[in-house]
Design a protein around this nucleic acid. Structure first.
Lengths: 336, 336
DNA sequence: CTGAAAGCGCTTACAG
DNA sequence: CTGAAAGCGCTTACAG
């Protein structure tokens, strides 16, 4: 592969002149620049990334750390991976995708070896084992998902509490007094997925304020348990007039389950949920829902991270930012 | 961050000795090795990736090139991304995820800058614009998906022709004589997604051999077109006794569509399809199907690529490998 | 069993 | 407006 020396020779200039032409950090005469550009094109020269990183301590690569659990319902994951990658490219960064079980070790490895300029942590949990590694790391990071202790870290997430309140308000205004709430699976709570209890607690609290009855159940993440559990949940509280579903696998299975029971929405039952736009489209979900935008979250987080990298410490105090929920009414609720 | 010099100083040895201790390319006395190990641990030393790459011309990073189309049905994509990443790690490689629109440019950039040791091309089309770049590149690559001209390239894919024949045989043995085939959307054919016509052509040919009637239609990739088109397809050929679905979005929507029409499977209609194991689980699909294994494909492709990298040209002649389809009978077909 | 030195391909002060 | 030189952090032949 062509080196800067090859370009310099072909253009009849020094290597430093080629470097300055590349960076634009020096005024270069028009003829010289043209000879250099021609040489670069004809040689197909692209600066060696390793050499550049060695010299500048910048790689223009960001690590994206995923936690991928075998028991997880996967389709929603790509919703974050794609926008993170796209926004990174907009800023000139590539994405190193890390899916290792031991996220803290992966973070240490990639950060200590200087492979990346920063890291994005997805699916952050309450006591996330990656955070200690991140705090010690010589590279900045940004979280999507809220940890128990966010001290010193930039955090972005949907406002799940507000989302729950909006949905409960919506049902309350329609006169519903007996709700069923399907939460994420038990293992999400146990693992410390704070979004799960932020949503649940806010929903329960809001319902209590209005004097509504709420029956709470864990959904499942894999079939056939998803469908079976939904039936049990519906059987357990036949008086309920509305169901709030905060679980991708359950909401995806709900149309078939309700169809099988002869339940017509919203005539017999009102349904509200929370899911991402693309997810809803992929599964053709017809429900009134908080429609999340992983794209927005990814963009906010990435831009914050890029700022931290480029301002090297002068990016100000850490930010915890909750994105406003957006309710889309699809007519799956009716007045009681 | 700690450098090899810091480790050498702390251990009281030369930098080269530390390097040899790291690589194991030299016998080191036990005491020396212990001092070095202690220094590495206490300093949290990890060799600088850029420096190492500069010296060795190896980065231990692989590029994974995705084509992500806005009109595509996304859930299946992650099925490849995750196993590719996992298998890469098993072999000591990290994955650089590239989703740029201009795949050839991305390939050139990453390959000429020496950022990666090899590339994995996903979703390869008949006249894939990335192939010219790959053939010129100074790095090996491997394809998942079959191009029109595979000369000089390692190619892996499911045997879609055989998959189609197996499904048609299955229906023929049950006495079906009037089939409907739902193919991938029109734009997949136009884009050159060879798997689409390899499946369709084989199905049509096999049916003709048995004297079966086949009516072929394009499925859609996004709602609400998916559902609407499925209804049209079923309306257009009420005499058909079986349907073969080769389209993720359509098969995911089919249960609801059939339910809505009061069609009971397999009593009124036999259904067979082709989809990946995880996809089928996510959508709770109850159909007899060729169950693809992106994991297997990813592993075969990755191991081939790693071999090419590590044997540097001595990996033998290029391979085109079609993986055998695997039919899982879920009882969605009945005798006619 | 260990060390001193060269060199990978860049960038950037220093000098003119 | 341009060039010669140092140095980033490694690995590995060369030498002992």
């Amino acid at each position: 592969m062509a080196t800067i020396g090859d370009v310099a020779r072909a253009a009849g200039v020094s290597r430093s002149t080629v470097s300055y032409a590349l960076s634009g950090n020096r005024t270069i005469s028009r003829e010289t620049r043209e000879r250099i550009d021609a040489a670069i094109r004809s040689l197909g020269f692209t600066p060696n990334a390793g050499a550049r990183a060695l010299k500048t301590s910048r790689t223009m690569v960001l690590a994206l750390l995923l936690r991928f659990h075998a028991d997880e319902f996967a389709p929603a994951m790509l919703e974050y991976v794609l926008p993170v990658t796209d926004v990174a490219r907009e800023h000139g960064y590539d994405i190193l995708l890390m899916t290792e079980e031991d996220g803290a070790a992966a973070l240490n490895r990639v950060t200590r070896s200087g492979m990346v300029d920063g890291v994005v942590l997805l699916d952050v949990t309450h006591a996330d084992p990656r955070l200690a590694a991140l705090r010690e790391a010589a590279r900045p990071g940004v979280l999507i998902g809220v940890p128990g202790d966010a001290a010193g870290l930039d955090v972005f997430d949907l406002d799940f509490g507000e989302a729950a309140r909006m949905l409960v308000d919506h049902l309350h205004q329609l006169g519903h007094e007996d709700l069923v709430l399907v939460t994420p699976p038990r293992h999400v709570f146990e693992r410390g997925g704070a979004y799960a209890w932020r949503f649940r607690d806010a929903a329960v609290e809001r319902a209590a304020r209005y004097g509504l009855r709420v029956t709470t159940h864990h959904g499942e993440s894999r079939q056939p348990a998803v469908t079976g559990t939904l039936h049990e949940i519906l059987d357990a509280r036949p008086e309920a007039t509305a169901v709030v579903v905060h679980n991708d696998a359950s909401i995806a299975a709900l149309p078939a389950v309700l169809h099988g029971r002869g339940v017509v929405v919203p005539r017999d039952l009102s349904v509200v949920s929370l899911y991402s736009k693309h997810f809803g489209e992929a599964f053709s979900l017809p429900y009134t829902a908080i429609e999340t935008s992983p794209d927005t979250l990814a963009r906010l987080a990435l831009e914050r991270l890029v700022k931290r990298i480029e301002l090297a410490g002068d990016a100000g105090t850490p930010v915890v930012r909750f994105v406003d929920p957006d309710l889309v009414d699809r007519g799956s609720t009716a007045r009681r």
